[in-house]
């Protein structure tokens, strides 16, 4: 699977994760995220794919008692983002995230997108306005909301809210974007919009996507990793995973024998 023109943007090395109740949720994970590629994580419920995704921006730090072991290294600076000396807030400023259910803030559309810049202390109005416009365009939402940027974000439809959350994540120029089942709460049309959007971002941004939907993984991703019971079973080009999986367990899953 190694390829000469691929740069590794981040990678998990011998990574283990334990929940506060002692559950060993991730076991010796080794997974590279290639720069400007989309990596999909698939696997049955409870296999640890969301847990792995949420380790990349240290979301588990919010709940006491969770424990990481091993490394998640970010390139080119070679920082182990799990290191106790690394501020999780700094990690989250480099790696942004889109959640399963759209979770806009109780603010205007504009303020939602500007939020990340505001917490970074940005006050320049001109720059904020430019960034918000750019992010909303990047999330294919600008044309729908440009005349009502001061409306409350809750007034948008579910699909629009999710694109707003993508715009919010884009506005801070992240190096990596994490998507935790970004379309599972959306209808098919909104899902198609989000997938199209991810396609547009391909090549500009390193992305990691957790999905329950194998067609989605096949449609949007460049690389796919199959996880089962906390183990990373197989990681390869998406085409190879879906056409000629090397592992029997992967084959069982993608052919529907495990669900």
């Amino acid at each position: 699977m190694a390829n000469a023109d691929l740069t590794t943007k981040a990678e998990a090395r011998d990574f283990n994760f334990f929940y506060s109740n002692g559950h060993h949720a991730l076991k010796n994970i080794n997974l590279p995220l290639y720069e400007n590629k989309i990596t999909a994580l698939i696997g049955p419920s409870g296999c640890g794919k969301s847990t792995l995704l949420r380790s990349f921006n240290r979301m588990h730090d919010l709940y006491p008692g969770n424990r990481y072991e091993g490394e998640i290294v970010m390139h080119p600076d070679n920082t182990n983002i799990l290191d106790a000396n690394v501020d999780p807030i700094e990690v989250r400023m480099r790696i942004s995230m889109v959640f399963q259910k759209p979770n806009p803030f109780p603010k205007s559309i504009f303020e939602n997108v500007a939020y990340g810049l505001r917490v970074r202390g940005e006050k320049n109005k001109r720059l904020l306005a430019d960034k918000v416009e750019e992010a909303l365009k990047g999330a294919a939402l600008w044309d729908e909301v440009k005349d009502r940027l001061q409306d409350l974000a809750f007034n948008l439809s579910g699909g629009q809210q999710q694109r707003l959350c993508i715009a919010r994540a884009l506005a801070t120029d992240p190096e990596i974007m994490l998507f935790d089942e970004p379309t599972s709460a959306l209808d098919p049309i909104a899902t198609a919009n989000i997938e199209e959007l991810m396609n547009d971002l391909r090549g500009k941004l390193t992305m990691l996507v957790v999905t329950h939907n194998m067609q989605q993984a096949a449609r949007v991703s460049d690389y796919t990793a199959y996880m089962y019971l906390g183990d990373l079973i197989e990681h390869d080009k998406t085409g190879d995973i879906f056409i000629k999986p090397k592992d029997k367990r992967t084959e069982d899953y993608i052919t529907g024998r495990i669900s």
Binding site: L62, N103, F105, K107
Partner: peptide, 26 residues
């Protein structure tokens, strides 16, 4: 909902920023 706090933290907000700018208005 916790999801709203997670959204704020994921943007790189501190606890204080999350409390003041997201949770309190909500």
């Amino acid at each position: 909902p916790m999801s709203m706090r997670e959204g704020a933290y994921a943007m790189g907000a501190t606890r204080f920023q999350t409390a003041m700018r997201v949770v309190t208005p909500a």
